[in-house]
């Protein structure tokens, strides 16, 4: 575990805490994409199947449980909480799951390091995570009135990905046999997805303006 990895995980954790606090404090999930949250739930479930088979560390197990629990909490609130569910932008959050899930599934069946159920699902989760933010970015562009917390949530998620790239560089330089090409390429794609958002986020912050994305 290096500093970049720890900071990356903490940023990821913080992003989820920001989202939980925002929804809980304002009793509103306006601007939050349920599709993205559900894609993350699929990502975590497929990737963390090894919770039952492969113990890595207490840290690893605790973080996995937190990511699963918090994501399912958000989904539960958005779907079933009697106050919060009313605030969900159902009509704007129209990105289709299958456009992301099917290509990622096909790709994971073709490009994987071992053709087993666990390994294919793990690889699928890596590919799906790279694009899971897209419904959220599309919703953000549509709602056009982004509250600070939603903007911060996405900024923190993007930062976590950037820190993971630094973690990989560090590991590549310090661990002799450390190589994971599929993860690296997906991770770089995932980070590129955020670049446009980062540009507008930083610009609005510098100019002290409310964040808005051009249509």
């Amino acid at each position: 575990m290096n500093l970049f990895r720890l900071l990356g995980d903490m940023t990821h954790l913080l992003s989820i805490i920001v989202l939980l606090l925002k929804i809980n404090a304002t009793r509103s999930c306006r601007g939050v994409s349920l599709k993205t949250q559900e894609l993350y739930a699929i990502v975590f479930v497929c990737r963390y199947l090894d919770l039952f088979t492969n113990f890595i560390s207490l840290y690893n197990t605790v973080m996995k449980v937190i990511f699963l629990g918090s994501t399912f909490t958000i989904i539960y609130w958005m779907r079933f909480h009697k106050v919060i569910r009313v605030t969900y932008d159902r009509d704007q959050d129209t990105f289709r799951y299958q456009f992301l899930i099917i290509p990622c599934l096909l790709l994971s069946l073709i490009l994987n390091s071992e053709f087993t159920v666990m390994e294919v699902l793990w690889t699928f989760s890596i590919y799906l995570e790279a694009v899971a933010i897209l419904p959220q970015l599309v919703l953000l562009q549509r709602t056009n009135n982004i509250d600070n917390l939603t903007g911060n949530y996405i900024f923190l998620l993007g930062s976590y990905r950037a820190l993971y790239i630094l973690n990989w560089i560090y590991r590549f330089l310090t661990e002799p046999n450390y190589r994971q090409y599929l993860v690296w390429i997906s991770g770089i794609v995932q980070t590129i997805v955020y670049i446009d958002f980062f540009y507008y986020y930083i610009r609005s912050w510098k100019n002290n303006e409310k964040l808005s994305l051009p249509a």
């Binding site: 090894d50 890595i56 690893n60 996995k64 990511f67 390994e119 046999n177 450390y178 993860v183």
Partner: peptide, 10 residues
């Protein structure tokens, strides 16, 4: 074995 190493990441 290479890929298994990577599984310590979240």
């Amino acid at each position: 074995a290479e890929e298994a190493e990577a599984k310590d990441e979240l």
